[in-house]
C-alpha cells in the first residue's frame, strides 16, 4: 500500500514540476520543450513500476518496467534477429516497393482519366480489404519468409500513397499552369518543375501514414506463418508460453522502430518541403 501511495505522490510531484516548467521562462526554450515530455514519460514508467509492485499485479497481467528492461537487456540478441527479420526485411522493403509502385500508378492515373476512373476505385477496394484476410493468402503465395510480409506491407501502404500523390499532383493553381504554358513547357517539364514539387507536402503525408502501417502489417502478417524468428512470431509464441516480459520487449522494439522510422521520414519531409507554410 505504501508503494501505491508513493505512486500517487510521485504523480502529483511530476504534475507540479511539469506545470512549473510549462509556466516558466523555460517553456519556449529547447530544454523546456524536451523536459516536459521526458518528465511525463519517466513519471509514467515510475508510477507503473510502483503500482505493479504495490498491488502485486501478476506478471502475466502486467510485468513491471524493470522486469521488461531486464528481459530486454538479456535478450538483445533475439530481439535484434527479430527486428532484422520483421522491420528491416519485411517492413522496409515492403514500404519501399509499395511507395514506388503507388507513386508510379499515381503518375499514370494523373495522365489518363480512363485510369483515374478505373484504378482509383480498385485502389480503394484493396485498401478496404482486412489484413487478416489478405495476409494468409499472401503468405500462401510468397512463402513463410519476409517476402510475404513485404507483400502484405505493399498492399497496406499502397492506397494512402496513391490517394495523396494523385491529390497532390492536382494541387497547382491555374495561374501556375498557365505560366508553364506561356513557356511552351512540355508535360515532363511541367511535371518535374511545377507539379511534383507542389505535390510533395501531400506525398509526405502519405509517406508518414505509411510508416506506421508498414510496421503493423509486417508484424501481423507473421501471425499467419513465418520462420522461427520475427517480431510477430515472437509475440504470438511468447504469449503462448506466458513470457509477457518478452512480449513487452518486442512491443518496446516496435514502438522504438516505429518512432524512429516516422521521425526519419519527417526529417526528410522538413528538408524537401522547407518552403511549405507548415514547415517554415
Amino acid at each position: 500500500m505504501t508503494l501505491f501511495l508513493a505512486a500517487l505522490v510521485l504523480w502529483m510531484a511530476a504534475w507540479w514540476l511539469n506545470t512549473r516548467i510549462a509556466g516558466s521562462s523555460l517553456a519556449s526554450s529547447y530544454v523546456g520543450r524536451t523536459a516536459v515530455p521526458v518528465v511525463f514519460g519517466l513519471s509514467v514508467l515510475a508510477i507503473w513500476e510502483l503500482v505493479v509492485r504495490g498491488l502485486d499485479v501478476p506478471q502475466v497481467i502486467l510485468p513491471a518496467p524493470t522486469v521488461i528492461a531486464e528481459t530486454f537487456a538479456s535478450e538483445t540478441g533475439t530481439l535484434w534477429i527479430d527486428f532484422r527479420q520483421t522491420a528491416l526485411k519485411g517492413a522496409i522493403s515492403g514500404y519501399v516497393i509499395g511507395c514506388l509502385a503507388a507513386f508510379a500508378v499515381a503518375l499514370a492515373i494523373d495522365r489518363s482519366t480512363f485510369l483515374r476512373h478505373g484504378l482509383l476505385p480498385i485502389g480503394g477496394f484493396v485498401a478496404a480489404l482486412p489484413i487478416v484476410g489478405t495476409a494468409p493468402i499472401l503468405v500462401n503465395w510468397f512463402g513463410f519468409d519476409w517476402q510475404s510480409k513485404a507483400a502484405v506491407v505493399v498492399v497496406m501502404v499502397f492506397f494512402p500513397i496513391l490517394v495523396n500523390t494523385v491529390q497532390g499532383l492536382a494541387d497547382t493553381a491555374a495561374m501556375q499552369r498557365d505560366l508553364m504554358r506561356t513557356y511552351s513547357a512540355s508535360y515532363w517539364q511541367t511535371l518535374l518543375k511545377l507539379r511534383l514539387p507542389a505535390a510533395m507536402p501531400f506525398v509526405f503525408n502519405g509517406l508518414k501514414i505509411a510508416t506506421t502501417l508498414a510496421l503493423i502489417g509486417a508484424i501481423v502478417a507473421e501471425y499467419f506463418g513465418s520462420p522461427t524468428r520475427g517480431m510477430g512470431f515472437r509475440i504470438s509464441t511468447s504469449v503462448g508460453t506466458l513470457e509477457l516480459a518478452m512480449v513487452w520487449s518486442e512491443i518496446a522494439v516496435a514502438a522504438l522502430a516505429g518512432t524512429l522510422f516516422y521521425g526519419a521520414v519527417t526529417l526528410v519531409e522538413r528538408w524537401v518541403t522547407f518552403w511549405h507554410p507548415s514547415q517554415r
Partner: peptide, 15 residues
C-alpha cells in the same frame, strides 16, 4: 519565345 507574360499574382514557386 515572342512574349513574356506577367500575371496579377507574382506566382513565384516557393521552393
Amino acid at each position: 519565345r515572342a512574349y513574356g507574360y506577367v500575371f496579377q499574382e507574382a506566382g513565384l514557386y516557393p521552393w
